[in-house]
Write a protein that binds this DNA or RNA. Structure first.
Length: 455
RNA sequence: GUGGAUGUAGUUCAGUUGGUUAGAGCGCUGGAUUGUGGUUCCAGAGGUCGCCGGUUCGAACCCGGUCUUCCACCCCA
């Protein structure tokens, strides 16, 4: 009895029509990355758990897919932990590999491991799937592609500016209206410092990240639950209520943070970024958003998030600066900054808004109808010559009924069909049918090439 | 991980208070048309009603479990 085939929860198959559209996204993203001088790398799907664990916060560790050790993986597990049934403890004994959760941490590992070979500053792009054991929803998958660009080994804020340019360029090319939100972890640290709660930085950021979603009341409630003193919460209020232009906000926050060295550093970084950004022709709005926090806890400086303006979906691009990521792997003092484009969410947005170019569906330009062996051997060399001219051409692989072959061309949206039978072989002229308007012409080889190249 | 919804033909969906043989549109296959698709007409194939169990004389329908997809929380691309 054959079982019904299926794939794991949160994963998907992609058919030809979807792949054409997905490749359109990958191609434009990649071409912009290259335009800015980034170089490609790839890393394995699996990493050692030791390089993955502890980099994404407590939640992140839970969302890692772990791979069981090969062989009889239970033999090395201590008896007491087995009987205890403590999954967390048991994991260390039965699993030492995991599927990568993002591309940034593997990249940091790559840089440290290949430090003698890479030229700093190292600008790399990487387009590969990542896996998260999240509960799937719309726009949330367990396997999805990230398109990362990072510059590592350069502290310059020029990199932050260039990343924003890249975001702008890519979304212009894809025709998606977006807003870039930017903030700085140093400012957030400064805030925590000023209100006297430097060790509560993560709780504070996570809570205020939800400001526009749940409102100020509930944010305050959450802060209280996390053990923040009343007074600290009160001190936080003016910061949450900042308004005005980016510059105006920075002026206000500077005043609040005047006693915090790190906070002022963050403010000055943001000032520089906006300063350098000003004369550039950036199409999309770039907004300083002090409630933007981002959960990944390796960020230390600028943080970015990009939202689609015309569809309600999670962020479609995110990133930031990380000063210590390579330090964890034994190479301190190398700062990096990067962003990640979520290809699958970009696809969902473009599909929903019908932004994919129409002609993207066409792959084959010309189909030769197959009438039989004699006609086939006459056509085959002609087909090769046409392909040599760079025209995508197919010949139907068997002498099926005309109706079937025409139907194939129709379904595949092939714009031209070549018909070669007795008459054509004798005259040397090929009958070319335009599938759009049904018109037919008898053309010489050169005329046919001419006709198809002009399209 | 917590809470809530959902699942019927390839697909989108009907299916009455539990009652004989579970329907439709689109798609698919064949024919009208042995050298002409996309339009039209005719015919046909295709379903263990997500899966497992229970209640019942009888379950697509009621109950329990499980899986999928979707929504909210959490988090994120």
């Amino acid at each position: 009895m054959a079982q019904k085939p299926s794939i794991p929860k949160g994963t998907r198959d992609f058919g030809p029509s979807e792949m054409v559209k997905r490749n359109y996204i990958f191609d434009t993203v990649k071409s912009v990355f290259k335009l800015y001088g980034f170089q490609p790398i790839e890393t394995p799907a699996m990493e050692n758990l030791s390089t993955l664990m502890g980099k994404y916060g407590e939640e992140g560790d839970k969302l890692l897919f772990k791979v069981l050790n090969s062989g009889d993986f239970l033999t090395n597990a201590p008896e007491n932990i087995l009987t205890e049934k403590n999954s967390t403890k048991l994991t260390h004994h039965i699993s030492e590999k995991g599927l990568r959760y993002d591309l940034t941490v593997p990249f940091a590992r790559f840089v440290v491991q290949h430090r003698e070979e890479v030229q700093f500053p190292f600008k790399r792009y990487q387009i590969q799937p990542v896996w998260r054991a999240d509960k799937p929803q719309k726009g949330r998958y367990r396997e999805f592609y990230q398109c990362d660009v990072d510059v590592i080994g350069s502290n310059s804020l020029l990199n932050e500016v260039e990343l924003i340019q890249i975001v702008d360029e890519i979304y212009n090319r894809l025709n998606i209206r977006v807003a870039v939100k930017i903030n700085n972890r140093k400012i957030l640290s400064g805030i925590a410092e000023v209100i006297g709660q430097p060790d509560k930085i993560i709780d504070i950021t996570v809570a205020i990240d939800k400001l526009d979603k749940i409102g100020i009341e509930k944010v305050n409630l959450e802060l209280e639950e996390k053990g923040l003193p009343r007074q600290a919460i009160t001190q936080l209020q003016p910061i949450l209520n900042l308004s005005g232009s980016n510059i105006e906000k920075l002026v206000q926050i500077k005043e609040v943070l005047k006693t915090s060295e790190i906070g002022l550093k963050g403010v000055s970084e943001m000032e520089t970024v906006f300063d350098w950004l000003a004369p550039l022709q950036i199409q999309c709005p770039v907004e300083l958003d002090l409630t933007l926090a981002r959960g990944l806890n390796y960020y230390t400086g600028a943080i970015f998030e990009v939202k689609a303006l015309d569809m309600q979906i999670g962020s479609i691009t995110g990133g930031g600066r990380y000063d210590d990521l390579t330090g964890i792997f034994g190479l301190p003092g190398v700062s990096g900054v990067g962003i990640s484009f979520g290809a699958d969410r970009i696809y969902d947005v473009m599909d929903h808004l019908d932004l994919f170019p129409k002609n993207a569906a066409t792959t084959t330009q010309l189909l030769f109808v197959n009438f039989g062996e004699k006609e086939q051997s006459w056509c085959l060399p002609v087909v090769s010559q046409i392909r040599a001219k760079g025209i995508t051409t197919e010949i139907y692989p068997e002498p099926a009924k005309m109706k079937k072959q025409m139907g194939y061309a129709n379904d595949r949206k092939i714009p031209f069909v070549a018909i070669v039978g007795e008459v054509e072989m004798n005259s040397g002229l090929i009958t070319l049918k335009d599938m759009e308007n049904g018109e037919q012409y008898k053309l010489s080889f050169d005329e046919l090439i001419d006709k198809l190249s002009s399209k």
